[in-house]
């Protein structure tokens, strides 16, 4: 009896699959951004409430706060003291332990987004519950003294 001829097995062609996967890798490598982002919740009518879930409501008028923090370029003025932004967090912790619950954060004209974000982050991490963020009027002079050039 004659044995049937073994059918030639067609190999699995991987080249198109590899091509497509390489294209996907190139697409994701070029279009994606791998960076550890963080979020600082900011809410309120032109003011910020930090430390909550981002949904608190604050009154429309700028109510007086326990403390006023002026953010300058790379520095912050807290009362009569001018601090480097790196030193703001320990000062905010002491402030909170002394009973301060609300802070009015005023951005001077020289302040950049980085300075505002660092100040908000320091207050948030210090546990200050209520931070209201306002900007200095455009026509006003530079707020506060003791600002060092960057």
């Amino acid at each position: 009896m004659r044995r049937p001829r073994a059918r030639a097995r067609r190999g699995f062609v991987l080249t198109p699959l590899v091509d497509v996967i390489f294209l996907l890798v190139i697409f994701f490598a070029l279009s994606s951004r791998i960076a550890p982002f963080g979020l600082i919740p900011v809410s309120g009518q032109g003011r910020a409430t930090v430390g909550g879930n981002g949904t608190e409501t604050t009154p429309r008028s700028v109510a007086p706060a326990d403390e006023t923090l002026v953010v300058l370029r790379g520095r912050a003025r807290l009362g009569s003291r001018v601090l480097a932004l790196d030193a703001l967090r320990p000062a905010a912790i002491r402030m909170r332990e002394a009973g301060t619950r609300s802070v009015l954060l005023l951005t001077a004209r020289s302040a950049r987004t980085e300075d505002v974000a660092r100040a908000l982050d320091a207050l948030q991490r210090a546990g200050v519950e209520n931070v209201r963020l306002i900007a200095a009027p455009a026509a006003s002079a530079e707020t506060g003294g003791g600002e060092a050039s960057p």
Partner: peptide, 26 residues
């Protein structure tokens, strides 16, 4: 970006009815 511009835009967004969250880099 100037901090005052950021605060103004955050205020406009809040006034338009959105809760805002500032994206920063860790």
């Amino acid at each position: 970006l100037a901090g005052s511009v950021l605060v103004q835009i955050l205020g406009e967004a809040s006034a338009a009815g959105a809760a805002t969250s500032l994206v920063v880099l860790n």
